[in-house]
Amino acid sequence: MGAQRVAVLGGHGKTGRAVCSALADRGVDALPLGRADQPDLAGAVGRCDAAYVIAPNLHPDEPAHVASALSALRAAGVGRVVYHSVASPYVPAMPHHLGKAACEDLVRRSGMTWTILQPGAYLQNLDLAGPLDLPYSPDVPFGFLDLADLGRAAAVVLTEPGHEGATYELATRVATVRELASEAGVEVRQVPDPGTHPWLSAMFAYYDDHGLPVGTRVLAALLGRA
């Protein structure tokens, strides 16, 4: 039997809202939790039988954050955890990806029943309403993931049996940014990296050379699509 009440750690951001919405569509009680709940996380999740764990974006020490969350979940008797990782977590050139790789190891050794989701870049991260400036090549391949599909996939693994111990890469479609921009009828140009965060600069440099390819068949299978 799947989870009936799910704590969504990081539930107030765009990822968490997508997961909560998809769980609600399945009649599952979703409890969105944020930073204000961290001091007594064990108390906050006390009536939940599963948790979806999303760390804050670019957290300076995601493994410590996730280790603390896992400890609170265990203390509260939550037996099932789904961790929101990233596609290609072990990429030495991208420090925040390596942090998620370390978190995956923590989840696998947590003693809880676990599933790991590795999403590709969100389609919604691209503003295709007008001309698009991009700090990396628009001609490299990506496996893009629609946020609603991420929510649906999370709801499937949380509510249906057979996903324990699984790690799933998720993408809705494979494309270059130039292809997406062309479909939307907007111009795209590559501009210099603004240098706002060293981890983002490292990510842009990696994207510029390699993109972030992710296959689509796992998501299609999870969602029952042809």
Results as ranks from 00 to 15, higher is better:
residue 1 M to K: 11
residue 2 G to F: 10
residue 7 A to Q: 12
residue 8 V to G: 07
residue 9 L to H: 06
residue 10 G to H: 08
residue 13 G to V: 11
residue 15 T to L: 11
residue 15 T to F: 13
residue 16 G to N: 13
residue 17 R to A: 12
residue 18 A to P: 02
residue 21 S to D: 15
residue 22 A to S: 13
residue 24 A to F: 00
residue 31 L to G: 11
residue 33 L to H: 05
residue 36 A to Y: 05
residue 36 A to P: 08
residue 37 D to C: 15
residue 37 D to E: 14
residue 41 L to K: 12
residue 44 A to M: 11
residue 45 V to S: 14
residue 48 C to S: 08
residue 49 D to R: 07
residue 49 D to G: 15
residue 50 A to W: 07
residue 52 Y to I: 14
residue 54 I to N: 12
residue 57 N to K: 06
residue 61 D to Q: 14
residue 63 P to Q: 09
residue 66 V to I: 15
residue 67 A to S: 15
residue 69 A to C: 13
residue 70 L to R: 04
residue 72 A to S: 15
residue 72 A to V: 09
residue 73 L to G: 11
residue 74 R to K: 14
residue 74 R to H: 10
residue 78 V to A: 08
residue 78 V to D: 10
residue 82 V to R: 02
residue 83 Y to E: 04
residue 84 H to T: 07
residue 84 H to I: 12
residue 86 V to W: 03
residue 87 A to Q: 11
residue 89 P to Y: 05
residue 91 V to A: 13
residue 91 V to T: 15
residue 93 A to F: 05
residue 93 A to S: 12
residue 94 M to K: 04
residue 96 H to W: 11
residue 97 H to M: 10
residue 97 H to S: 12
residue 101 A to K: 12
residue 102 A to S: 13
residue 105 D to M: 13
residue 106 L to T: 14
residue 110 S to D: 06
residue 110 S to N: 10
residue 110 S to M: 12
residue 114 W to T: 10
residue 114 W to P: 10
residue 118 Q to A: 01
residue 119 P to I: 09
residue 119 P to E: 02
residue 125 N to E: 05
residue 125 N to G: 03
residue 128 L to Q: 01
residue 129 A to Y: 01
residue 130 G to L: 02
residue 130 G to V: 02
residue 131 P to M: 05
residue 131 P to Q: 06
residue 131 P to D: 13
residue 134 L to H: 02
residue 134 L to M: 04
residue 136 Y to M: 11
residue 136 Y to P: 00
residue 137 S to V: 09
residue 138 P to Y: 01
residue 138 P to I: 04
residue 143 G to W: 07
residue 144 F to R: 00
residue 144 F to P: 00
residue 145 L to Q: 01
residue 145 L to G: 05
residue 145 L to I: 11
residue 146 D to E: 12
residue 147 L to F: 06
residue 150 L to G: 03
residue 150 L to M: 12
residue 153 A to P: 10
residue 155 A to W: 10
residue 155 A to Q: 07
residue 159 T to K: 01
residue 159 T to S: 04
residue 160 E to I: 05
residue 160 E to Y: 08
residue 161 P to A: 15
residue 164 E to K: 01
residue 164 E to N: 06
residue 165 G to F: 06
residue 167 T to M: 09
residue 167 T to Y: 01
residue 168 Y to V: 15
residue 169 E to Y: 04
residue 171 A to Q: 01
residue 173 R to Y: 00
residue 173 R to W: 00
residue 174 V to D: 02
residue 175 A to F: 04
residue 175 A to L: 03
residue 176 T to N: 07
residue 178 R to S: 10
residue 184 A to L: 08
residue 184 A to K: 03
residue 188 V to G: 02
residue 192 P to I: 08
residue 192 P to Q: 04
residue 194 P to H: 06
residue 195 G to C: 08
residue 196 T to C: 06
residue 196 T to R: 12
residue 197 H to G: 08
residue 197 H to V: 07
residue 198 P to N: 00
residue 198 P to M: 04
residue 200 L to M: 15
residue 209 D to P: 00
residue 209 D to A: 15
residue 211 G to S: 10
residue 211 G to H: 08
residue 216 T to N: 03
residue 221 A to L: 09
residue 223 L to Q: 01
residue 224 G to A: 06
residue 224 G to E: 03
residue 224 G to P: 07
residue 226 A to G: 11
